[in-house]
Write a protein that binds this DNA or RNA. Structure first.
Lengths: 336, 336
DNA sequence: TTGTATGCGTTATCAC
DNA sequence: GTGATAACGCATACAA
């Protein structure tokens, strides 16, 4: 590896001048500029991040901690984050935890030991208290999830309203028996979406049936199993709202296997509007989040925080919308 | 931020001793250990990666450059990589390029400036020559793809054989008109898979129809469009082999929309055995790659290289297998 | 416009 | 078993 010293020697200038060549070229004379340029190219010199980071006390890197990389939902969010970060000279580094709390904790050391300047979290396995402590010491922003009353700033959609609108849409189609398949975690989004579901029913004066609320993983298995349970009821639901497209696919697939026509015998709405919902047959209606913007806004918030401005507890809500496809339709007379 | 100096002062020892507390605790006496432990905890001290990395000239981080994060195919590979890396004290950092060559080049600076100790590439937009130059200077390994005759070591399945087997399977079902939808990139995998397709036909003495080979993106759109084209032929294919599940889904969806029964009127085999192929209705047959093992083996190779052993040009092939689901069946009499 | 000199936080070498 | 100190590569304050 070449060092700044070798370049300086080769160019016949001081190390300070070589440093300026990279950090303040405007200060150098044209002739010096050329001398250094030649030496840099000849030696194929690249300033070491190790020395620079120590000296400047920053790395210009941002860590993004995700539960899993496999959800296509995250892809565009990361693109938005990456674009916004690059505008500010930062680079995004992604780490998947696989939902494992230990793995998440190990990733945190990158924040502790200053290997990165800040971090973005989606869901976290950290307790509210611990996450709060983290956020009060390190530049941390949350995306798509947030802890009520936390000092950590966050960017999200209005999950309660989104669920309310999705369920209301189903009710508007004439459905009276609308089920919900939620996640069994304690994420704020899960809680809020269930709240929205309950409020939608209440607003239409439809009695809540607790057995129509199922909780499980984000896997499509959960959808299939829940559907099986629903069919075992004396009055099965004619519509299902799920908190993830993958769950919705499970429901749809199970329904198709039972010979039902989805969009007629059964209506289904998923969440996140992933490619899965778009390409499935039938196409699955879903609640779309502004992914790219969520990512961009999250990084903007982090940049604010990094530049010293006060962002404690700041919450940014972005608009969602319902995408209607083939999996939703008027309540079918035969099932009423 | 606390420094080692502050901890040393608080504990009443030298900085060297504090350093030993973290790096060689065995050398310290029990009483010193306790003193330092107390100080570390009291100050909530975390050794700075900035200082350590400069001093040791390594970061114990590995960069993984992926085209996109949205393909669930990568998820398990990354898990395998992460597990194997952690065994060796390394951390995996993922960066998506979105297939953008400029983005990929910007990521390379992390390698050049030693922000990471090594890197893993999947496909790359770098020319063979440039990638070779990179690999000869930096610890780089390729996963799932490789450049014929490159110094960069690589881990992959035998793509030619995998395609050969998939197509042979279709031929074995009685199909004689078997199409292939390939990617339009110049990746080795695309070339090899097409080779396997051609060899399978040749082995069965079936004449090759060039119009049955389509090339496009990995998107499901490509599948749908290609299917449309196939239907416009005087003798459309009765089976299609695609180099990605997403493409296969496009084919299946378009076929369903035309009223065809997939698995009967049309057989389809995808590639990568992603969750998409598993959850689609009908389930889509696919060529499965040993994802976790691909990831693990890739990191093993990189570790070898990092520990100074010679790995130039080393190629590791892992076994694949064909997963049969509902999208493949005997050739349908009505379509012969 | 350019050079000299210092220090960032750590590890490692060499004493003791 | 422990301490003093040099060195890692760079950016920057200060001098010239």
């Amino acid at each position: 590896m070449k060092t700044i010293k070798q370049v300086a020697a080769a160019a016949g200038v001081s190390v300070a001048t070589v440093s300026r060549y990279f950090n303040a070229p405007g200060q150098l004379s044209e002739s010096t500029l050329q001398k250094v340029r030649r030496a840099v190219e000849e030696l194929d010199y690249h300033p070491s991040a190790l020395g620079r980071n120590l000296r400047t006390n920053r790395t210009k890197k941002i860590l993004v901690v995700l539960p899993t990389i496999s959800n296509p939902f995250y892809s565009q969010i990361l693109t938005g984050m990456s674009d916004e970060a690059e505008k500010n000279g930062y680079t995004i580094l992604a780490c998947a935890t696989g939902g494992d709390p230990d793995s998440e904790k190990r990733r945190l050391t990158m924040l502790y030991d200053q290997f990165v300047d800040g971090a973005v979290f989606f869901s976290t396995s950290l307790s509210k208290k611990r996450f709060d402590a983290l956020a009060s010491q390190y530049p941390v922003v949350q995306c798509c999830e947030y802890q009520e009353g936390s000092v950590a700033p966050a960017v999200s959609i209005d999950n309660e309203l989104a669920a309310y609108e999705a369920v209301s849409y189903l009710l508007g189609l004439g459905h009276t028996q609308v089920a919900m398949i939620n996640s069994d975690n304690q994420f704020e989004s899960s809680i809020l979406r269930e709240k929205g579901y309950r409020r939608a029913l209440a607003d239409k004066g439809i009695p809540l049936r607790e057995e129509l609320i199922r909780r499980g993983t984000y896997g499509f298995r959960n959808g299939a199993d829940s559907f099986g349970f629903f069919r075992s009821l004396k009055t099965p639901p004619t519509a299902v709202f799920t908190v993830a497209d993958s769950i919705a696919v499970g429901v749809v697939r199970a329904a198709l296997e039972q010979g039902l026509t989805v969009g007629k015998d059964l209506s289904v709405i998923g969440f996140d509007d992933t490619s899965l919902a778009r390409v499935y047959t039938p196409g699955i209606s879903s609640v779309a989040q502004p992914r790219r913007e969520l990512g961009e806004e999250t990084i903007r918030l982090l940049m604010e925080r990094l530049s010293g401005r006060e962002t404690a507890g700041k919450l940014v809500f972005l608009p969602h919308h319902l995408v209607i496809r083939d999996s939703t339709g008027n309540v079918c007379p035969s099932t009423v």
